[in-house]
Design a binder for these strands. Structure first.
Lengths: 178, 178
DNA sequence: GCTAGCATGTAAACGGTTACATGATTAG
DNA sequence: CTAATCATGTAACCGTTTACATGCTAGC
């Protein structure tokens, strides 16, 4: 889990309703766990940090299976922070696909349609900027121009990915703006 | 730059020839810098670690522009470590696209064709395993089944990406095996 | 005289990984 | 009775981010 992602995931999931740490762990695991499992050593300290900064509240409850549960609820400040992170994502959240997907997972929680559209517009603008992994004197090289077969693959895949995503972004923006 | 990536990038670039830290920084920046710029505070300590573990050697040289340069060269142990990382990548390097691209960037340096093919085969096997970001009782959901428009986008994009990559992997494997 | 680029470094704060630790309940 | 699942936590280690620090040369 890339830095910062975990906090957004916790806030985003709690934005859908209160739950305890163990359930957060299971939900995060389903969302992105095949890539990078959440460890207890990351999750529980992250919850403690959120509690200390007043974004999350704890209420002890009897465990369904066994032990006592710490049911977590977003405070008003926590919800405000979640919406702020969704409305004004960092550049890195826009440029890195994994992180952008983290945003998309919870974007429906942004109440204003115009705010949701603006996030998609930023991603589209990023994808429309010419870029490559390889350059010749600052000119981005296209797949056809690189001799290394694996480099060519990277560019072919990146192009297909970018095209698919741009198509979806344009369609979805058209719907949001209608 | 996700953890571990930086070390591979340094080893991989030095595998193409000796260079000093500042040039490494510029080359890494072109490869992935639009996503996550390399900071000096990550790069120079990483070089020091590689030197201490005997994977890299330093030779001082006069700087072309100004200051003295520390030209870095891979040792035999360093080249062995680079090849080991390319030949036997961690699961995370196979499952995360960003990390897999890090592998592809340097994969041509693997001398044995069979080893290069094996890395592609592992990635293909991962992509052929059914997976989703969303589940209903452990069954991965398809784009058509999820109501949230942003979740649907994630699945549509992931499918297009996966299809393009699988096509390229199969073609390239066929060439490598002929 | 100043700014941009070349070139290398250190230190504090932060967060993640891995391993360790505990304890209760349920199903085989 | 014992393994799996539920449930939460701590501590050492490691690497990254951010900020700070230095100093030289070339062009305006």
């Amino acid at each position: 889990m890339a830095s910062g992602d975990l906090t957004l995931s916790i806030l985003g999931l709690l934005g859908e309703g209160p739950m305890h740490g163990y359930e957060l762990k299971a939900r995060i695991h389903r969302l992105s766990g095949h890539l990078r499992p959440v460890s207890d050593g990351a999750l529980y300290p992250a919850i403690t940090r959120l509690e200390k900064s007043g974004l999350v509240e704890r209420h002890e409850e009897e465990g369904a299976g066994a032990a006592r549960r710490q049911v977590l609820t977003l405070t008003d400040a926590g919800r405000a922070e979640l919406l702020r992170r969704l409305r004004e994502p960092a550049d890195l959240d826009i440029s890195d696909q994994t992180r952008f997907f983290g945003l998309l997972t919870f974007l429906s929680q942004l109440p204003r349609r115009a705010d949701r559209a603006e996030v998609l517009r930023r991603r589209l603008a990023f994808l429309e900027t010419p870029a490559s992994f390889f350059y010749e004197e600052d000119r981005p090289l296209r797949a056809e121009e690189v001799p290394d077969p694996f480099h060519r693959g990277m560019l072919l895949i990146a192009r297909a990915t970018g095209d698919a995503e741009k198509r979806w972004l344009r369609e979805t923006l058209a719907e949001l703006e209608s």
